[in-house]
């Protein structure tokens, strides 16, 4: 498996979590590059810019509660531009709450691959990364 081509995005307003996430991915060598965003709008702007077509992520870890543009709003904006992206992106919703409403709402967005609950443990990490990679190989 060639992990070095993988780009993972983390969209979250929690700086500590972002640091931990990056460190963990680096330690476990889960992917080549981690890109951080603090809210949805910066990520959408990046995706919308055709100049960045070569640097699109393979996988996005998306927080729900964020200022300016939260996870749900990001999904609405993402659906509008996803057809123009030349890459299939896996999106994992990450949150610290297990709320039934959130699970229901996640089902409204077919682009959401799965739903994981903070703090994510190594099992969930491995599942998210390798699962997605296997899908790509298959």
């Amino acid at each position: 498996m060639d992990h070095t081509t993988q780009i993972a995005w983390i969209i979250d307003d929690d700086d500590v979590y972002k640091f931990g996430f990056r460190k963990y991915v680096e330690l476990k060598k889960l992917c080549a590059e981690v890109v951080e965003f603090s809210n949805g709008i910066d990520a959408i702007n990046f995706l919308s810019n055709t100049a960045n077509a070569a640097n699109l992520p393979d996988i996005i870890f998306l927080d729900i509660d964020m200022p300016v543009m939260n996870g749900w709003e990001f999904m609405v904006a993402f659906e509008k531009i996803s057809s123009r992206l030349n890459k299939k992106i896996a999106i994992f919703l990450v949150t610290s709450d297990i709320s039934y409403e959130d699970i229901l709402q996640a089902q409204n967005f077919p682009d959401i691959t799965d739903y994981i609950i903070k703090p994510i443990n190594s099992q969930q990490f491995n599942f998210a990364f390798t699962g997605e990679i296997n899908k790509k190989i298959a």
């Binding site: 979590y17 330690l27 709450d97 903070k118």
Partner: peptide, 21 residues
């Protein structure tokens, strides 16, 4: 519960990293 949970999660994450590093 929401706020304490996110701190607890981060602490756990850091401790795991500390172990691995």
């Amino acid at each position: 519960s929401h706020n304490l949970r996110s701190y607890a999660g981060n602490l756990q994450l850091m401790l795991n990293l500390h172990e691995e590093s």
